[in-house]
Every structure is written in C-alpha cells, then in structure tokens.
Amino acid sequence: MTIQEAHSSIVEDFENLGDWEEKYKYIIELGRSLPAFPEDYRTAKNKIEGCQSQVWMNSKFEKGKVFFEADSDAMIVKGLIAILLKVYSGFTPDEILSTPPEFMKKIGIDNHLSLTRKNGLGAMLKQIKMYAVAFKALADRQHS
C-alpha cells in the first residue's frame, strides 16, 4: 500500500461511519487494537507533552523506512495515534515529508478534536516529520 492509499483508506473508513458517536466508537476500537507499547520505550525522551493526556512515541529506521510505535493514557488519543501510525508508519522519509495530513480535514478530526496541545497529537505529528527529516539526513550521509 502506498502512503496515498493508506491516507485514502482511512478517509473511506470514516465515510462509512454515521454520527460522531459512531466515529468515536471506531476510534476507541482502533485504540484498543493498538499494539502494546514496549515499557522500555516509556522514557522521558520519548514522551510528548500534551496538555491533557500523555503521549509516548518511539521510532526506528529499517531498510529505508521509518517505523513508529506510540501510546497514550487516554483511549481516544490512542485511537487517533493508531490512525496516525496507519498513515505514516512504514514509509520512507520522503513519502512522509511529501504527504501532509489532509486526511484529518477530510474525516473531520480537525474540527472535532483540535489537534493542538490538548491531546499532544499536534506535537506527535511534528515529531513524526522531525524523525523523517533526521532519518533522511542519516540515509543521505550513508549514501554519500
């Protein structure tokens, strides 16, 4: 699946849902199915400060692709993390950097859940891009 397909797929998922209660139920379901976050990664370095909920994120660079693992103490935030990982984890730095989070507008997340400091997801998105930039620089150095 390309990064564009991953983005379209999540938009489709949400288009099939009814009102916000149904959407939240789906987000909660995604949160529950998020793989367990390794306790070793729950460090201060991996913590993203949100105003209301705590978010942790770890990243790996393997075979040219960036992989993210993340967790939160709030279930809805976990669900939103699951969405972010679906659309950004497992892609190359270039793919990540050239794909803005437009799906958020399309599924209405940005209206209903201000992805600002409230839930730390805005900060997480920024962090995803920063890791992509850092891994890209690393890869460029290794190739030159």
Binding site: W20, E21, Y24, C51, Q52, S53, D73, A74, M75, I76, V77, L113, K118, N119
Partner: peptide, 22 residues
C-alpha cells in the same frame, strides 16, 4: 479506567461542557 480526556471528549457530543485536565 477512563481517562478524563476521554470523559470530556465523549460527553461533549451530548452538548455537555466539562473541563478536563490539571
């Protein structure tokens, strides 16, 4: 078992304004 953030987000769909956080 339920984070205040989750309480505040869901109850808002019913038009109920609570504050959550510190």
């Amino acid at each position: 078992g339920i984070h205040p953030y989750d309480i505040g987000t869901i109850i808002d769909t019913d038009g109920i304004a609570l504050r959550t956080g510190h």
